[in-house]
Amino acid sequence: MVNFKKLLIFLLLLLFLTACIKTKILDDIELIMMFGYDWDASNEEYIGTAVSPMYGSSEESDLRENTEYMARAKTIQNINSKIDTQTANPIEIGKTLGILFGEKLVRHGIHDILLAINEDPNIGRGIHLAIARESAESLLKSTMITEGTLPRFIEKLLKNNAKTNVPDMNLHDFNYRFLGTGMDPFLPIIEATSSGIELNGIGFFKKDKMIYEIGYDQFFEFKILYTDCEDHTYQFDWEEKEQTIAISSISSKITKKWKNRNQVEIIVKINGTLTESKQLGIRSFKEKAKLEQAISQKLKEEGSKLITEFQELEIDL
C-alpha cells in the first residue's frame, strides 16, 4: 500500500504543479503579419506600422481585410507595447512574414532596429526584408485588391522575385552581409503604384545606410555578377543592327580568379535561349558567334560600369 500512496502523491504533484505559463491561444492573439518602420527625423522617433489580418468565420470571405496599427516611439519594444494599447488581443509577432523599412529610415540607418529584431527569438530568420519607397506606412495602409492579404502578397512578391530577378535576401542573409567583413547588404525596393505594388529597384547599403540604388534595367547585370542564376530573361539592344532581342531561360555560372591580391577576375558563363528573334534570322554559326560576341561585349561594359560605381562608393559585395 505504501507504493500506492506514493503513486497517488506523485499523480497529485503532476496535476497541481503547473508551470504557470501565460497561454497564447491561437485565436485569442493578434497575429502581426508585417511590420513597417519609418523614421521621423524631426522628433527622432521611429514610426511603426503593424498589419494583422482579420480572420472571418470562413477563410475565403473576409481574409482580405487587414487592420493596421500605428505607433511612434524611440525603441522598437515600445512601439510594440504602444500597439498593444490599440488591439483587442495581445499582439504576437511570431508569425511575421516580413519587415519593410521606409526610405527615410534606410537613409538614416537601421542598425538599432536590426539589433532589436535579431534579439527577439520570436521572429523567424527566414522573413523577408524590403525597402518601401517613400514610407512603409503609406505602403502598408494602401488599399488595393491583391491576391490574399497584403502582407502575404508582399511576401510572395519578394519570394517570387528572389528566384528570378533579384538575388535572395532574407533576414539571415542580410545579417550575414551586414556583419561579415568585406560585405555589404542590399535590399529590394518596393513601391505602391496606382495599380498595385511593384518591385522596381535594389538599394545598396554601406554599413547600415542605403547610399545607392539600381533600377530594373540593371537587375540582370547585378544578379549574374553576384550569384549563379537559373531562370532569367535579358533584353538585348543590338545597336549595330538596331534591333532588340530577348534571351530567356538564362542560366549562368560564376567563376572567380584571383589575379593577385588586389585584383579579381570574374568570369560569368551564360546559357540561354533566343526568343523574339525571328527578324534577326540567325542561320549560321558565324552569325551566332557574332551575336554572342556582341552580347558579351555589352554585358562586360555594363558589368564593369556597375563595379566601378560600387568601387567609387566603397560598397563591398
Binding site: I21, T23, K24, I25, L26, D27, I29, L31, P53, Y55, G56, S57, S58, E59, L63, E92, G94, K95, L97, N122, G124, R152
Partner: peptide, 24 residues
Amino acid sequence: VLTYHYHIVPGDLLGTLISSRKDI
C-alpha cells in the same frame, strides 16, 4: 500548439485553424 506554439503552425494552415476556432 494551439495554446502555446502558434509559431510552428504553417502560414497557409493558420487561416484555416483560426477561422475554424473563431467562434468556439
